[in-house]
């Protein structure tokens, strides 16, 4: 499976620093069509309005967490319900990982991480590139 690097990617985090880091790491990996959202609710609105090939989201946000966003997307019954979803979070407890997996997350990255980890996780979800 080849990865279309022109696909739209949505990154979600309430820390502007993290949004910029992920955006730049994605740019380095060749993904240039990257949109940003600062919480789950904003992300959900973007997903409803535009088609994304990948969502990369933080867990710990208010008012809507990344976990709630994931559940809302997977339970939507809409065309976007199967959008690949990677959780990028400092929440590294086993319980969180299990809950995210049960909610339909495709992969899980623990902060802090590097470009190589991000590349490996995207490859694991979308295929090699």
């Amino acid at each position: 499976m080849s990865v279309d690097k022109n696909m739209n990617v949505l990154i979600v985090d309430d820390y502007n620093t993290m949004l910029r880091i992920i955006k730049n790491l994605l740019k380095q990996l060749g993904f240039n069509n990257v949109d940003e959202a600062s919480d789950g609710q904003m992300a959900l609105e973007k997903v409803q309005a535009k088609s994304y090939g990948l969502i990369i989201s933080d867990w710990n946000m208010e008012p809507m967490t990344g976990y709630e966003l994931l559940k809302a997307i997977r339970g939507s019954g809409k065309a976007y319900q199967n959008t690949p979803f990677i959780m990028v979070t400092a929440e590294s407890k086993t319980e969180n990982v299990v809950l995210a997996k049960q909610a339909g997350v495709n992969n899980y990255i623990v902060k802090p991480f590097n470009a190589e980890t991000l590349k490996n996780k995207i490859s694991a979800v979308l295929g090699d590139f």
């Binding site: 902060k111 802090p112 991480f113």
Partner: peptide, 12 residues
């Protein structure tokens, strides 16, 4: 990119 990676300290 290495500098960007290191900047994640601020988030943590």
């Amino acid at each position: 990119i290495k500098i960007f990676e290191a900047c994640s300290f601020q988030d943590i």
